[in-house]
Design a protein around this nucleic acid. Structure first.
Length: 493
RNA sequence: GGCAUCGUGGCCGAGUGGCUAGGCACAGCUCUGCAAAAGCUUGUACAGCGGUUCGAAUCCGCUCGAUGCCUCCA
């Protein structure tokens, strides 16, 4: 199904600052690279939002019928604590702290990363390469840039010559900066700095004797610079020019700017057609950040072990909450907002759960085909999930009216409605219906039918003490009774 | 200090020139033995000031405020 032929998609390109019609380089195929985590600690919820945003984008592309190669890396080396010469590798630092091998650190937090994303129902990427698995490729790129005269070696380290690069290229075009301004705004070089200019960045760093993570290179033992790994891996798996490069907003500068510089220096081509940046999740109005400690971990939300939220929230509710905001907007996490989302989520799921049994009639009061296209229009407008969700609630309203015998729907429309809702909610938004996953055993249904019958008998006999007791006790157990036109049903909370 | 983004009704959050966003909360009504659920109805929101325009939340300018990046962070 090549839906994309009928669904023109517009994407906000960070490089141009505009929404552009999406046209893949190779018809029907998409190459997408997203900067993954540095695995030196557990992923916090802010990290998850970015990956969830790109998961939704990946899912929509697939839904449209594109063949997508989605590459998301694992940074397991090269990410320094800071830009200074004595900067320590994040992984190595953690390893020292916990007195374990660096690769044990990597393994531990990679597993945590995968487990957490799985809870949020993220699809695995097509390829998940690691920096340490691509040292050779990185060295080759450095050699290439050195040959072209856009990098220089000092004392076993290699730096990218930003000033020289800027003579024929435009350094800063992604982040809207001008090199002259940056130079004017930087403090003078520290005396021991090896770099020609503060803007220069490391392609290769010499490993001091005490450094554990080291690899041989033409410039001696060392390790690759952080920015380089993404260039190496994206080029290897997606080619010198590919469709989409994504990542968190905070990576725009310098990380992505440097990627552009490296690629252009090496291949002479602009590496990416569409740059996409997902915005931050804030907590208490401030960006979530590992370094400042202003963050919350997914496990703390699922367990309730935190002092920010009043109750436990499920992964599906958190995912739904995040999809109610556009991926390019800052989203603030709060208990009130999650509470509101949870209720909305429940309403949506309840409407969808009974969809199969919806009665059909000879006419439809609801123009399902037009509604369906509105859903696509929302997604085609730069993945506007909040608008999509607004339309989904329009459908919920009609479903409830039909259940209430206030509207009718034809069987053809019903099928279309069900298929469309399933596609958008489950496949595209990736929101799981936890009501369906709950215990729905024959035994429970039998017991519930019995209780409902006893209660209704009591009500008929005006024995409200008994009927209310059944209702209240069930409520306390998390089972809600609903008295409708067609009798009483129940849902598990 | 530089660059960038943003400021929408009680809360969250869409919307870039004229047409109801949506969710949650609140209130009233219908239904109910009472509730819950569901449905219906109601909100004269767009930081402030000035300008452009027949018309601006939406464009321009200024002011105030917030956030992000400029050093590691999705």
């Amino acid at each position: 199904m090549q839906l994309y032929k009928d669904q023109p998609l517009r994407i906000h390109n960070s490089l141009s600052g505009k929404k552009e019609l999406f046209q893949p380089i190779n018809k029907g195929h998409i190459g997408m690279y997203v900067c993954g985590p540095t695995v030196y600690s557990n992923v916090h919820l802010g990290n998850c939002r970015t990956f969830m945003s790109f998961d939704m984008i990946f899912r929509y592309f697939r839904h449209l019928g594109y063949k997508v190669r989605y590459v998301r890396n694992i940074t397991d080396a090269g990410h320094l604590e800071n830009d200074a010469d004595e900067g320590e590798d994040k992984i190595a630092k953690k390893a020292k702290l916990e007195q374990i091998e660096p690769m044990e650190v990597v393994q531990r937090y990679t597993v945590d990363f995968h487990n957490t994303l799985q809870k949020f129902n993220l699809l695995p990427p097509s390829i998940e390469p690691t920096a340490t698995g691509h040292i050779i490729e990185q060295i080759e790129i450095i050699k290439d840039i050195l040959e072209k005269g856009l990098a220089y070696e000092v004392n076993g380290s290699v730096y990218f010559d930003v000033v020289k690069f800027n003579e024929d290229h435009e350094y800063g075009k992604l982040s809207g900066r001008k090199l002259e301004d940056m130079i004017a705004n930087t403090r003078e070089l520290t005396a021991q700095d090896e770099k020609k200019n503060p803007q220069d960045f490391a392609l290769w760093k010499k490993a001091e004797p005490q450094h554990i993570m080291r690899w041989p290179s033409p410039w001696g033992d060392g390790f690759p610079g952080w920015h380089l790994e993404c260039t190496a891996m994206s080029t290897k798996y997606l080619g010198e020019t590919f469709d989409i490069h994504g990542g968190g907003m905070d990576l725009k500068f310098p990380h992505h700017e440097c990627e552009i510089a490296q690629a252009e220096a090496s291949t002479g081509k602009s590496p990416v057609k569409y740059w996409m940046h997902a915005n931050m999740l804030t907590l208490n109005g401030k960006k979530m950040s590992k370094s400042t400690g202003n963050n919350i971990y997914p496990s703390e939300i699922f367990s309730g072990d935190n002092n920010i939220l009043s109750k436990v929230y499920s992964p599906a509710v958190v995912r739904f909450f995040m999809k109610q905001a556009h991926y390019t907007s800052i989203l603030d996490l709060s208990d009130d907002a999650l509470l509101a989302s949870e209720k909305g989520y429940n309403r949506l799921m309840e409407a969808m759960t009974g969809l199969k049994d919806l009665k059909t009639g000879t006419t439809s009061d609801f123009d399902v085909a037009a509604w369906k296209q509105k859903c696509y229009d929302a997604m085609n407008d730069d993945f506007n999930t909040p608008i999509l969700i607004a339309h989904l609630f329009d459908a919920v309203k009609h479903i409830n009216l039909i259940k209430d015998d206030q509207e009718t729907i034809t069987s053809v429309d019903k099928e279309l409605l069900e298929a469309t809702l399933n596609a958008f909610v489950y496949d595209v938004l990736g929101i799981e219906n936890q009501a369906l996953a709950k215990d729905d055993s024959k035994a429970l249904n039998g017991v519930m039918e019995l209780l409902i019958q006893i209660r209704n008998d009591a009500r008929t006999n005006k024995d409200f003490a008994t009927s209310d007791k059944i209702r209240d006790e069930l409520t306390a157990l998390g089972i809600q009774l609903k008295d409708g036109q067609e009798g009483t049903t129940y849902t598990l909370k």
